[in-house]
């Protein structure tokens, strides 16, 4: 458990979640201030993704207090303008190329963190820019998903297993990209199975222990 900080982007205390009559999370707390990374680790089924869904306002907690950007998280447009989330692979819009999915982000958001070409280069997708996302490999689709998340402006990133499908080389590169994000003042909460990622990003590690 962490102590709540006055300027925290995320502050959760004593979070308790029950799913299907079974307690998934109990007495969990975390805090992330601007520039901080919190990594939630633990075995399968210990509630990492559930905790991230709570922080995104997609899963109500039975008890506890969660504040994201000075208010309770809610699935509203205003909330998502400051919070970006990557979880399971999204369904892609049919008829658009990889580049056009990134272009769409720049068309919607007033200011972006990088241009489409920079995002394609950073996520090693330049050669695949004109392919439909369904033509990409699993790892490339995960890179596209991360590129869309990191191209747009946000103050908080919620990443559920961002290393999924990525090769070892790109995992190291991802750590650099995330460090760049926090250097600009953003906060990151991520669930991960790759313990090198918290180490490379200087994350505060929260280990969830659950029933097996």
């Amino acid at each position: 458990m962490s102590n709540a900080m006055p300027n925290a982007i995320v502050a959760a205390r004593d979070v308790e979640v029950e799913l299907g009559g079974r307690t998934i999370l109990s007495g969990i707390g975390l805090t992330a201030a601007p520039g901080e990374v919190v990594a939630v680790v633990g075995d399968n089924g210990t509630g990492k993704s559930t905790l991230l869904r709570c922080l995104a306002g997609l899963q109500p907690a039975r008890a506890g207090r969660i504040e994201v950007l000075d208010g309770p998280p809610a699935d509203t447009t205003d909330f998502w303008q400051d919070v970006a989330r990557t979880g399971d692979e999204p369904v892609w819009y049919p008829g658009l190329s990889t580049r056009e999915h990134l272009e769409l982000m720049t068309a919607v958001h007033r200011e972006v963190r990088m241009t489409v070409d920079e995002a394609l280069a950073a996520f090693e997708l330049t050669e695949r820019a004109d392919l439909a996302p369904l033509s990409l490999s699993t790892g490339q689709r995960q890179r596209l998903s991360l590129a869309m998340t990191l191209l747009r402006p946000s103050r908080l990133l919620l990443l559920d297993e961002p290393e999924r499908g990525l090769d070892v080389t790109f995992r190291e590169r991802l750590a650099d990209i995330l460090n760049g994000y926090t250097a600009e003042g953003g906060a990151i909460v991520m669930a991960t199975h790759d313990l090198r990622l918290p180490e490379a990003t200087g994350a505060t590690v929260i280990r969830l222990e659950g029933e097996r």
């Binding site: 049919p94 008829g95 658009l96 190329s97 990889t98 580049r99 056009e100 272009e103 769409l104 720049t106 068309a107 919607v108 958001h109 007033r110 820019a129 004109d130 392919l131 439909a132 369904l134 033509s135």
Partner: peptide
């Protein structure tokens, strides 16, 4: 239909203000 296709990417129309 789209799996395996190469598309000619084109820029998105630029809309201003609330039209975004």
């Amino acid at each position: 239909h789209w799996r395996g296709r190469t598309l000619r990417s084109r820029p998105w129309p630029r809309l201003a203000g609330r039209w975004r």
